[in-house]
Nucleic acid binder design. Structure first.
Lengths: 342, 342
DNA sequence: TTGTAAGCGTTATCAG
DNA sequence: CTGATAACGCTTACAA
């Protein structure tokens, strides 16, 4: 049977108040009594019921982090960043994984916000706050991250990739490329849409017609099917744009496997993030997102809102940056890869 | 101000008991009253305080999962598996990340087990239960996973890699390789030690002297430093063994980058897991761990222990399997890679 | 310095 | 079918 504070009090021959006070250092207690209490705790193997405490105090010292895909390195680095910050303030970060499933996200948000955590950071799969408004108590501390929701008056921290992608594509064009492929994803549209739009705009604004066959949309929660890639790469593109980290890893790996040597047979700009080895970063241009910064800001912000709840929309937009590879090897732009790709 | 059940009762003109009953479907309530309650809930925007409920019930419907490195695909796939199982039983899986830090693990275990969760699955950084015994209440439902602890009478589910690694190394030897390098990690020793031991034993038992220079130990929580790899690969090995997934990714990437073509210049056996693209799996032999099975078993087991706490050690050992690549290209065994590695 | 007792929001046991 | 009310384990005025 679990022992309670009352048991401890009895064994120590004091009152529960005293026990509570020695546990929380909230009043000065004689050393002798203090010792008696400690002894009693020891013999009873007493552990305070944190749940009773939280209930009484109305505070949990926990923060929830809702992510759509825990296996994506973008989110796992984010998690590590956030954890680093909140742990310092003695908060426990509870991570829940929605698996890109809106229904799950709703349920999990509901549970987290009804007493499990003091505040929650959400990388949502929804694009409209009205879809989840009813599961979140009014003025509950929430920070949305990575994706902006419509009709939402919560703090939101996102990364704009428009300029970076535009710059990256433009660079490819300036190198002479005309057939530039682009692989995007079908999920989390608001983030990927912006990037795809940058690609489209950049191409068009450089007087190249957008060839829809060069645009491939894949399920970013799965590995890309090799057959799909094989079919796609028959379109004789001389350069590629990969619109997120998992796409980059998969497509890059595929192409290398097929004998493509980047910077020679083909140019590419892709996403780096964690999980990447330097060899790849040196082979292609990358777009680097300020993940650490976003994590830090989100963590700081949620802590602030917990301390000081306030109904105020505050939207922070960080900028991804385009990082060209160091030594861009000379490349004959319109030349088709020497090693056939298929 | 947050509204309570009492407020709802007042607005609906009923008693708190009634409100509770309509909320929990625990007694038959007239439709009219039921509707009045629903209306009151609606107008007050009432959400039950889950914390008060949990406190009262002594049950959380949550399970904790303590992992050392959330960014490692081994653990993230495990998380997804476990989540799949427990979610079906209406449990919320709370993932906490210890970042391979024993002190953090201890604190987090302490907090989780003192009321936050009903049971906990732990991939521990400790190797001795006595180090954490005092933070876990007696007979609290715990399932250890991936790593076995000394002095521990909890359920434990591990994967034995000895046979698989032995088989893999043996295969390399049978192919004619004599200088077989091995990269291992300095953390989570009990798991990696077994694998390293398999390597050593296999080599020795085939009358090859173990060359300590061929064994490299790296920090598995970081990317492997390229300079370290460069130095290491001067030792003219003709085949490699990579003892976990992150090592495999890093070293494989490095070597490919340096122009090595696996199955031609070099043979290797490594770890696959998620996060891998097929191109790599086809290039080297892999050791495949039954991650999904481990996750499912662990989840089922913790649920069982929560329902029916029992002090009984039960140790389950799953077996990793060696999976040779399909078409092993002809390879001149002792030939040094044509492309210099450095 | 220590003890008494109220109360946090629910659930559940009784009566009505 | 519905309503009082005790109880869960703890914190915290306030009293002694």
């Amino acid at each position: 049977m679990k022992s309670t504070m009352k048991d401890v009090a009895v064994v120590a021959g004091v009152s529960v108040a005293t026990v509570s006070h020695v546990l929380n250092n909230t009043k000065h207690i004689t050393d002798t009594i203090r010792q008696r209490v400690y002894d009693a705790i020891e013999t009873l193997n007493y552990k305070p019921n944190i749940n009773a405490r939280n209930f009484k105090m109305g505070k949990q010292q926990t923060i929830g982090f809702v992510v759509p895909d825990i296996a994506n390195s973008f989110f796992s680095t984010l998690i590590n960043e956030v954890e680093g910050v909140v742990a310092k303030q003695d908060y426990l970060l509870l991570v829940v994984n929605t698996q890109e499933n809106p229904e799950m996200e709703k349920q999990q948000l509901h549970r987290l916000t009804s007493g499990l955590v003091d505040g929650v950071i959400v990388a949502s799969t929804f694009d409209d706050y009205n879809m989840i408004r009813h599961v979140i108590p009014n003025s509950f501390p929430v920070v949305f991250i990575d994706r902006k929701l419509k009709n939402c008056s919560c703090d939101t921290i996102v990364i704009s990739n428009y300029n970076a992608v535009y710059k990256g594509v433009e660079e490819l064009i300036l190198q002479g490329h005309r057939r530039i492929g682009c692989i995007t994803g079908s999920q989390r549209l608001s983030t990927l849409d912006e990037r795809l739009q940058a690609y489209r705009n950049c191409v068009t604004e450089h007087n190249i017609e957008v060839d829809e066959e060069l645009i491939l949309s894949v399920d970013v929660t799965k590995k890309i099917d090799m057959e799909v890639l094989a079919r796609y790469f028959t379109h004789k593109m001389t350069a590629m744009v990969f619109l997120n980290n998992t796409i980059t890893v998969d497509a890059f790996g595929y192409l290398v496997h097929k004998g493509v040597v980047f910077s020679r047979n083909m140019d590419a700009v892709g996403y780096s993030d964690a999980g990447w080895h330097e060899y790849a970063i040196n082979a292609i241009d990358v777009i680097s997102q300020p993940i650490a910064e976003m994590g830090n800001i989100a963590a700081a912000r949620i802590l602030e809102r917990i301390d000081n709840p306030v109904v105020k929309k505050d939207e922070i937009v960080l900028q991804a940056v385009y990082v060209p590879r160091q030594q861009r090897a000379p490349v004959s732009p319109v030349e088709f890869p020497k090693t056939p790709i298929n």
